[in-house]
Amino acid sequence: MTKFVCAILLMLVMAFAINDTYAGKEGSLRPEECAAACDQRCSATQYKKACLTYCNLCCAKCLCVPSGTYGHKEECACYNNWKTKEGGPKCP
């Protein structure tokens, strides 16, 4: 019984430690969830490779990807406000 209780306590401590790692970041995604979110975001574009490259870069920084395949950038301020040197949007 004590081994079971210790295992449960260890899992709880690990869960809180993992959540603290992402505390203070804008989005609710974890880095490992970016690929799937970007696959969805870039599914309708004809420039899929470029879209995926920049979406994954933006997601890694912001931990957020807007819903849908276009628009909705207001859902992720970091994703929306990251600009290129020329002032255009960095994130698709």
Rank of each mutant, 00 (worst) to 15 (best):
residue 14 M to T: 15
residue 65 V to T: 08
residue 31 P to H: 10
residue 53 T to I: 02
residue 2 T to K: 08
residue 55 C to L: 04
residue 39 D to V: 02
residue 77 A to Y: 04
residue 66 P to T: 13
residue 40 Q to D: 08
residue 38 C to S: 08
residue 50 A to S: 14
residue 41 R to P: 04
residue 37 A to P: 01
residue 52 L to N: 07
residue 42 C to E: 01
residue 47 Y to M: 12
residue 37 A to D: 08
residue 33 E to H: 13
residue 89 P to C: 01
residue 45 T to C: 09
residue 52 L to D: 02
residue 11 M to D: 02
residue 27 G to C: 03
residue 2 T to I: 07
residue 27 G to M: 03
residue 2 T to F: 11
residue 11 M to C: 13
residue 10 L to Q: 05
residue 82 W to N: 04
residue 60 A to W: 10
residue 92 P to T: 02
residue 5 V to E: 13
residue 53 T to G: 00
residue 16 F to P: 03
residue 13 V to D: 07
residue 9 L to R: 04
residue 71 G to E: 07
residue 56 N to L: 05
residue 33 E to I: 02
residue 71 G to H: 10
residue 6 C to D: 14
residue 59 C to A: 11
residue 70 Y to W: 13
residue 85 K to G: 08
residue 36 A to S: 15
residue 35 A to S: 13
residue 24 G to F: 00
residue 73 K to M: 11
residue 22 Y to Q: 05
residue 47 Y to H: 14
residue 82 W to R: 10
residue 67 S to T: 14
residue 86 E to L: 10
residue 49 K to T: 14
residue 12 L to F: 05
residue 21 T to R: 13
residue 6 C to E: 15
residue 18 I to N: 09
residue 54 Y to I: 01
residue 5 V to Y: 04
residue 90 K to E: 03
residue 12 L to A: 12
residue 35 A to I: 05
residue 11 M to Q: 06
residue 65 V to K: 07
residue 38 C to G: 07
residue 78 C to P: 03
residue 35 A to E: 14
residue 21 T to G: 05
residue 53 T to C: 00
residue 45 T to D: 09
residue 84 T to G: 06
residue 35 A to M: 07
residue 77 A to H: 08
residue 22 Y to G: 10
residue 81 N to Y: 14
residue 80 N to L: 09
residue 42 C to G: 05
residue 87 G to A: 06
residue 47 Y to I: 07
residue 21 T to Y: 15
residue 54 Y to D: 02
residue 67 S to V: 10
residue 18 I to T: 14
residue 10 L to D: 02
residue 59 C to Y: 08
residue 2 T to Y: 13
residue 38 C to K: 02
